[in-house]
Design a protein around this nucleic acid. Structure first.
Lengths: 224, 224
DNA sequence: TACAATTTTTAGACAAATCTAAAAAAAATA
DNA sequence: TATTTTTTTTAGATTTGTCTAAAAATTGTA
């Protein structure tokens, strides 16, 4: 049976399930999905039944769901497209990193393998998106990168900001205001155990103090 | 009342109505719309009622429809987006002119004014798409160009191929096989009144004979 | 273990977009 | 003008994706 047509709504559920599986490291419950999708639990149950019938998810009542290989392939490809479009928007159209998510959310549903291939080529086969998230290749393989949360880095160490954990607009704009972006060099000067905040030197010049909340949302690649 | 949300299906109907109004120079009938949309007449009636309720079309039972100003603005913007994306696909991603229509058909529904503005800028504010169709500007104004159908051009005249009337894949591929593309220089050598076919010299070198069916689908800008 | 809290499913509705078949209206023609 | 043909609308269904309220199942806790 050739792969049936998959709607945008279905695609969005697959992506949500993929992310929950990944983040929580286990089968996704109805509740987590309904929160991610901002819909009612009843809608989720309905959709899960549909996805199961199409053999995109492994689903048994009250058990929590995982993606089948087919579902996983679709979800991974959506993430690939989403992230490639984000690179396009930032690199080619000069969008800011806090603006691209909702647009990529629409662009990711455009159905043309050739378009993805050509876009990837046009962008120079990027491995990471504007937030530092890895872009899976055409076979669904994600690039791996040695990285640690800034909050885990010891005093005196140096590194480069390579990714953000949180993607919210306010967070990204706050980083902009501090002139902290991907590629920024950081050196850990001090750590205040009282509230977990840290003092850093960025780009070998100005100093900033970051709260624990911020530290725990920045990924650093340590300088060897 | 702020502009209500407009679905993709609604957008497609508006675009179809716009084109019928333009081509036939009069209100679009149910039948023409149902043919353009490849749906049943009943579906069209339903949709017309919805569009009328949203004040996007002028509609009275059995009268034929035209777009309201609001509807016209939306349709024009869709055409703008469609054609800009086609330019992107051809100029930046090296797609052939016979491949881009269905992809642009999806891309045109992406909702972001900023995206359109930036894309237009990125492409260098093109005035015509890869088929030679004018791209309306942000205010909805279409560029005008002096052009005639090849079938109307007199013997001895020279000109440049600037547009195609038909957009079908087979037609475009046939032109490719003759090495006829936008910008190709043509000189009319002979016209056969028997079947309306014409003999031309293209790019000041090779000769081709085109059937009337082809002549009537090519737009030429005459050389002064 | 038994009760309470939480999660998930079921039941029943609704809106959007579509369909077929039949009825009504408009247009064409004899 | 009367009749036939064509076009358009109505009536009644269907599918997708959603909802609320209530029931059922699972999980947590006293």
């Amino acid at each position: 049976m050739a792969t049936k047509k998959i709607s945008q709504a279905e695609e969005n559920y697959l992506k949500a399930i993929f992310k929950i599986n990944e983040q929580e490291g286990k089968a996704a419950g109805n509740k987590a999905i309904s929160q991610a999708m901002e819909t009612s639990a009843a809608s989720v149950t309905d959709m899960l039944r549909r996805l199961a019938k199409k053999e995109l998810i492994n689903y048994e009542s009250h058990k929590g769901v995982t993606l089948t290989e087919k579902g996983d392939r679709i979800a991974t490809n959506l993430i690939r497209k989403h992230r490639l479009w984000e690179v396009f928007l930032v690199d080619k159209l000069q969008f800011a990193w806090d603006e691209v998510h909702p647009i990529a959310e629409e662009l990711e549903h455009i159905k043309s393998d050739k378009l993805v291939t050509r876009l990837d080529e046009f962008l120079g086969h990027p491995k990471f998106d504007p937030h530092g998230d890895p872009i899976p290749d055409a076979d669904g393989n994600f690039a791996f990168r040695q990285q640690v949360l800034l909050s885990e880095v010891e005093i005196g160490k140096k590194g480069t900001l390579v990714g953000v954990q949180e993607h919210s607009k306010p967070f990204l704009q706050y980083l902009d205001s501090l002139e902290l972006g991907l590629g920024t060099e950081v050196e850990i000067l001090e750590r205040y155990s009282y509230d977990g905040s840290m003092r850093l030197r960025i780009n070998a010049s100005k100093e900033v103090v970051l709260s624990q909340k911020v530290n725990q949302n920045l990924y650093i690649k340590l300088t060897e």
